[in-house]
Design a protein around this nucleic acid. Structure first.
Lengths: 217, 217
DNA sequence: GTCTATAAATGGATAGAC
DNA sequence: GTCTATCCATTTATAGAC
């Protein structure tokens, strides 16, 4: 038992350390939402958590390290929503599964444009996500691919076309109608367009030539 | 004639002034391409044109004014391509007209990511295009709308869905496969998907219910 | 772990001579 | 129109006391 007692103190310290890192990351997100992803300095973050700027270096080795933590945090958030959504989509018809996927991603992006910018655009000069952080990004895409395989869209090009379509709606919404829903409300139409052309349509197969049209003409 | 002589000198001066402004804008574009849209300072631009930083203020009142000139310049470039493309597309079948439009936009964006970022994303903190500059942006969209009307896609939502689709391809290409063609090569498939679902298909009308499906289910 | 002090660099912008 | 000199603000990051 001496062992556990001896280890508990460092454990507590570690937990406190991790909690402070969380606070810092959350504060940075708050500032990013308020003033834009690039609109804040380490001094600002420090002030928001009641510290002085140099103290932050106890927790993050650089501003880019903080960005990296935010990057991983954002993808962790997204992953936390992907799993339930995948469960919800399981067994559902393709149209519905696609709607769930699209709504999830579009909502996620539109509710926090700064997060969208950090996770899906390459807009911060000098920042490159670390390998562990980037691994989380791959995890999200893998889940996406799995869902697609389940509803019969195996081609990688189909996944790419899908991501382009959904990202395009988000990008246009944020750039040209921030706060509105001009592109947001086109999600059902986009899903319908995608499904009807990319999924072999059992009910409406009418074309005379071969299998229904997919990617790559 | 005394009048013309008296006016010629200021005219020359004005022309020289305009030429220098051009040089400065071009130098700024060069730096933006090399180091990213936000990766240069006024000092850098000055050095590139063989000046000192303060001299730039003779030509532009601020860095944002220079951004504004670049914004207008970029759209002028795009407009210069739109007119011939519209002429080329006139009378062509919808599929071909859409291909011309998509290729034009995608090529334009991919050949200069920094320009894409300035013209189509809102990523520079504090920069808002001036009204004259923004008017050029509207002109481009108007040309787009006109082409769509001509091939029978009148609904504004269809134009929005189209722009989302094309922007999405560009965005994904630049963010996830810079320099490659993983999304670039999906342009034909995207055009095909869009046309087949959004344009009343005279040759393949088979659905039993009403007119072929367009936007807004 | 947090602080003060400060390094070290950068960048936008202005004053005023030439 | 161009320059030098400089202001003024900002920011990331480090050193070292406590």
């Amino acid at each position: 038992m001496g062992v556990t007692e001896a280890k508990q103190r460092p454990d507590r310290r570690r937990a406190r350390h991790a909690a402070t890192k969380r606070e810092i990351v959350d504060a940075a997100w708050g500032l990013a939402r308020e003033r834009g992803l690039g609109g804040w300095s380490l001094r600002d973050v420090a002030e928001a958590v009641g510290m002085r700027a140099p103290s932050l270096y106890v927790y993050f080795a650089s501003k880019n390290a903080l960005f990296d933590a935010m990057f991983a945090d954002g993808y962790a958030d997204l992953l936390g929503r992907v799993d339930p959504a995948v469960a919800r989509a399981r067994g559902k018809p393709a149209e519905e599964a696609l709607r769930i996927a699209a709504d999830l991603f579009v909502d996620f992006c539109l509710e926090d444009p700064a997060r969208y910018q950090l996770l899906f655009l390459r807009t911060i000069p000098g920042f490159e996500p670390s390998e562990p952080a980037y691994a989380m990004a791959r995890q999200v895409l893998d889940a996406q691919v799995a869902v697609f395989a389940e509803i019969g869209m195996g081609a990688p090009e189909q996944v790419d076309l899908w991501t382009a379509l959904v990202v395009g709606l988000v990008s246009q919404q944020l750039s040209n109608d921030p706060g509105g829903d001009r592109w947001r409300r086109l999600v059902p139409a986009a899903v319908d367009m995608f499904r009807r052309t990319q999924l072999p349509d059992r009910a409406q197969r009418t074309s005379s030539r071969g299998p229904d049209p997919t990617i790559g003409e």
